[in-house]
Simulated scan of single mutants.
Amino acid sequence: MSKIKKLRKAIFPVGGLGTRFLPATKALPKEMLPVNSKPLIQHIFEEARASGIEEFIFITGRNKNAINNHFDHSYELQDILGEKNKQLELDLTSNWLPDAGSIAFVRQYEPLGLGHAIWCARNFIGDEPFAVLLADELLLSAEPMLKKMKDIYDKNGGNYVGIMEVDKDQTSNYGIIDTANKNEDLVKITSMIEKPSKETAPSNLAIIGRYILQPEIFALLEKASPGVGGEIQITDSMNKLLETDNFHGVKFTGKRFDCGRPMGFLEANIAYAAENDAGELKEMLKKYI
């Protein structure tokens, strides 16, 4: 067995337009919308770093400069907070920032789909394995989901996707896998299909926004044709990679929030607020429900 290469790099596709959140996202990237006072993209970044990721590659587009600025020092603000001895607020602005030289921003130019966004990072990944994390999907659990996946990868190598069960009526919103051992926490994937109808879906096991992939996927993405929605779908190329490499699904058992939808975003804020002060939240909600 060949030596398993260390997983050091992660891709964050953040070039989407965020049209479901207009007019808020006319000037503000949806990834900067706050959940419990912390931007979505920072939640996902911190999951990656807590999982042992060392290099962070953001695939951006126009009007995403707020993300770049968030991952940088704000010297004017830090000077003011320092002068006023507001140490807690000062820590919140800078203590979580990555080391210099460990972060990169790459322009996608055109919103051609998730597969295309990942392909745009090929020169920064090289011949290494890499993770992909989607900022739309906030996963609340005791152990970071990516860390759970990475621990399995470190032992066995290969390719992995996060999966969870969804209602059959919802299969057309996800990439869906087929497997012979549906009831296990780690499943061997036999095929994948993007957004099938409930009549054609091979299962109700959906791919959620966490991936660990081998660099061979880039050659397939380069030749990929547009799929569902007229976009380059990562699921199509992963399905082709199955012909030569192993793919496994790792089941997520915590709480998942689809923050690409306004109601999912609202639910995430409620859930994270409940983690901090359930009593105050309950009293507030009584006013409206």
Rank of each mutant, 00 (worst) to 15 (best):
S2W: 12
S2G: 15
K5N: 10
F12A: 04
G15E: 11
G16K: 08
G16A: 15
L17Y: 11
G18I: 12
T19H: 06
T19W: 02
F21C: 13
T25Q: 03
T25F: 09
P29C: 04
E31V: 00
V35F: 08
H43I: 09
I44S: 06
F58Y: 07
I59H: 04
T60E: 15
G61W: 10
N63F: 04
N65A: 12
N68S: 13
H70L: 11
S74A: 10
D79I: 10
D79P: 00
G82N: 12
K86H: 07
K86Q: 09
L90Y: 04
D91R: 06
D91T: 03
L92I: 02
T93D: 07
S94T: 15
W96Q: 05
I103L: 11
A104Q: 04
A104D: 08
F105V: 03
P111N: 13
L112V: 06
L114K: 01
L114Y: 08
H116N: 10
C120R: 10
A121R: 05
A121N: 02
R122I: 05
R122H: 07
I125R: 02
P129M: 03
V132T: 03
V132W: 01
L134H: 08
A135L: 10
D136S: 13
D136I: 00
L140N: 09
S141C: 11
A142K: 11
A142R: 10
P144N: 09
L146C: 03
M149T: 03
K150N: 04
N159Q: 00
V161L: 12
V166E: 14
K168W: 05
K168F: 13
D178M: 05
D178N: 10
N181W: 00
K182W: 01
N183C: 01
E184Y: 03
E184I: 03
I189S: 06
S191A: 11
S191F: 01
K195N: 12
P196A: 14
K198P: 11
A201M: 09
N204I: 14
N204K: 01
L205K: 14
L205C: 14
G209R: 07
R210T: 13
R210P: 10
I212K: 08
P215I: 08
E216Y: 03
A219T: 03
E222L: 06
K223N: 13
K223A: 11
A224F: 00
V228W: 12
G230K: 00
G230I: 02
G230P: 05
D236H: 00
S237V: 05
M238C: 05
M238A: 01
M238N: 05
N239K: 09
K240G: 10
L241I: 04
L242K: 08
F247C: 02
F247M: 15
H248C: 10
H248G: 09
G249A: 11
K251T: 14
D258W: 04
D258E: 12
G260R: 07
G260I: 06
F265C: 14
L266M: 15
A268D: 13
A271Y: 11
Y272W: 15
A273K: 08
E280N: 09
K287A: 14
Y288C: 09
